[in-house]
Design a binder for these strands. Structure first.
Lengths: 234, 234
DNA sequence: GGCTAAGATTAGACGTCTCTAATTCATAAG
DNA sequence: CTTATGAATTAGAGACGTCTAATCTTAGCC
């Protein structure tokens, strides 16, 4: 049996592996889980002993297949819970992270199966993050790009809003920056902000917030706002 | 902040206080939580330090008002969860104890409030156990009596089925012994069993199982089975 | 090729919850 | 009123997850 804490480490390493290359370094894990480096080292020893991570001293760790499966399961729990809280218990999508962070470690397989069924096996959670399949196969690599990686004039569709700060999420929701929304990149300022617009207005975002928003190029001709003067595609 | 374990002790002591008189003894707690006596002693020291129990060495403990409030809150969580699992996630009433035992420690006030609202603030859970109010005032003393305390010929209505063993519960459910069911006490055998009947048949129960079933005298004239030959009341 | 700064690990400690073994206490029986 | 018995407590230990302080390794710079 794994403790909640171990599950949190595995989940954290999984997310870090998706953002950084191969061996995930101690310091990264420490920062992301808000613990000190020695704490991480000793936990990595335990996880390595259990075959959940492959570890090379002073280099970092990488999830084994088994460790990855655990991480994916926890993430499935988390995202199904978020969807359930929003769809069936009237939570706002901005306030579900905390509850899901706790419950993800404590629901049974049974509970997971029943909420998945009740939700109709959704593919994404309320933030636009993909929900792993029940088979726990690691989902395909993320095809989206951070908002910060697009250029002025690009027209994009918001895919995922990965900010985890409740106040910031509320502000973004208020400003209409939600999954599915079509945006145009209006400006990238050298003072650490960028400005985007949609049919109901424009919004200036600090770079760190913009980095949490992932989007895809808009492909449809059915523009949200056909007269948009910065459209870069037909 | 209290750990889950502490919450379990408080819940356990609360239940024991309802069944036994005043100071709850170490050995009882140890048995009910399946730990050793020294473990209980050291936990009681901690709970006493925090003002959750009043402790007299070598005598036992009693919940303080604060300790009782915590216990009642956990029990409210437990029973609301059971009701929610049955009503909204298609669980059987026989299989909800385990899931609720875990989740009761991990849901937020918010979650509690939302499932209570969704359920319409029910008064009892699927086993017939009363759900404490949101005010967390300790509920009134149990008015029901154990099935074992009735006499042959008595007609009763099942109020609560407190057995926590899933297989036994399934069997009882199968046999039609569920909250709300009207029963007649048919026989009390000296070999440790008693027999009850209802309109669909009769059932012999071992005394320990019968002791977990709590009932009230049937008061209505609208008999389930008017021709019942053992009826002791009109 | 050697030095140094950044980063990782080891050492040692603490709080939690649990155990077994040893001891102490309360009480019921004589 | 004394003692034996059963219950409770104390003593000491181990696993877990965390910390700070000290030490060691790696990698980059000159």
């Amino acid at each position: 049996m794994l403790s909640d804490v171990m599950e949190d480490y595995l989940k954290g390493i999984y997310e870090l592996q998706r953002e950084h290359e191969a061996p995930v370094k101690t310091s990264l894990i420490a920062e992301s889980l808000d613990v000190t480096a020695p704490t991480v080292t000793s936990m990595m020893e335990k996880l390595a002993e259990r075959g959940l991570v492959a570890r090379e001293k002073y280099k970092g760790v990488e999830l084994t297949d088994e460790g990855e499966t655990v991480a994916v399961e926890i993430i499935r729990h988390h995202r199904l819970l978020e969807a359930f809280l929003v769809d069936h218990l009237d939570y706002e999508w901005t306030e579900v992270h905390e509850e899901a962070d706790v419950l993800e470690h404590h629901i049974s397989e049974e509970f997971e199966a029943r909420i998945a069924e009740r939700l109709g096996d959704p593919a994404v959670d309320p933030h636009g993050d993909p929900i792993p399949e029940a088979t726990l196969e690691p989902p395909a690599a993320d095809e989206t790009r951070s908002l910060a990686d697009f250029s002025v004039g690009d027209r994009v569709v918001v895919a995922r809003v990965r900010d985890r700060n409740e106040d910031e999420l509320e502000y973004l929701a208020e400003a209409g920056i939600v999954p599915g929304r079509q945006l145009v990149i209006e400006e990238k300022a050298p003072i650490g902000t960028m400005t985007v617009s949609h049919e109901d207005g424009r919004q200036t975002l600090p770079d760190d917030v913009a980095a949490t928003i992932r989007a895809e190029p808009a492909e449809t001709d059915t523009d949200e706002r056909p007269d948009n003067r910065h459209a870069s595609e037909p």
